[in-house]
Design a protein around this nucleic acid. Sequence first.
DNA 1: CAGTATCCTCGCAGATACTG
DNA 2: CAGTATCTGCGAGGATACTG
Lengths: 150, 150
Amino acid sequence: MLRDYDEPDCAVAKALAIFGDRWTLLIVREAFFGTRRFADFEARLGISKNVLAKRLGHLVEHGILARVEAGRYGARQEYELTSRGKDLTAVITALRQWGDRWIFGEGNEPLVVVDRATGKPIERLRIRRADGSEVPARDLEMRPGPGTRS
Amino acid sequence: MLRDYDEPDCAVAKALAIFGDRWTLLIVREAFFGTRRFADFEARLGISKNVLAKRLGHLVEHGILARVEAGRYGARQEYELTSRGKDLTAVITALRQWGDRWIFGEGNEPLVVVDRATGKPIERLRIRRADGSEVPARDLEMRPGPGTRS
DNA sequence: CAGTATCCTCGCAGATACTG
DNA sequence: CAGTATCTGCGAGGATACTG
């Protein structure tokens, strides 16, 4: 049995229980790109109808996508990111940046996350101290803190 | 067929192909907490030996963990995060923060990532513009950019 | 202790056909 | 178009026993 699933106090395990598979986050990413209709997800991801329906339903259940009626021109239903869903930006960005740094190598990161206010792409996530200085990855340490749920 | 796996140009899909399952990131997280030995991973995660051995081998293959000989006191082998592995901090942190915000609710985030230099916990990831100002999540938009691989 | 070897179950994912 | 229904294969994950 999956012990971590029984643990009500682990945020990482809980999050992974929702999208700890190969498709779910890709669907969310596709939604970020503006895809809203079933057939478009299907075509762009190359996923089978069967699995897509299940995954979309799963995401709606967990409040990450919302089904909205758009009943005209043949498109009867559309899927829209909720705020909970939009807040996955950091997760997807972190994944993509890691992939760019370690799979594709450095120096040619694609610019994908855009700041609406300035219209400019965000280059990378940074982790900063309260005073605004950046913490280098090598200085980071993860450990259970008091009251941690991770 | 998994179309995204055939796509050599998608960093997110590539990253998910490596740890797009329920266990792999939990093992990495455990390694962040200082776990180094097979039996400790086994006990702390409640994972079966079978799967653990496969996942650890997988992580070593992909250069996220390194096997180091520690042949004394009965512990013959240990696993250590490589720099590629340590760089997954942002991914795990993003996941945990999302879980904390949206599964457990706000206001009581556990502090888990620690800045070695100051000894203080990092509260959250922030996305900032070049001038240092923070970009609110609502202002973020994701889209394929020129030359994007996402 | 750190695995390997077997066996088993379950659910993911794909393919195809059908429906409102 | 947006699914549902059905069937199938495959691999993830678990349990247990065994080994150097």
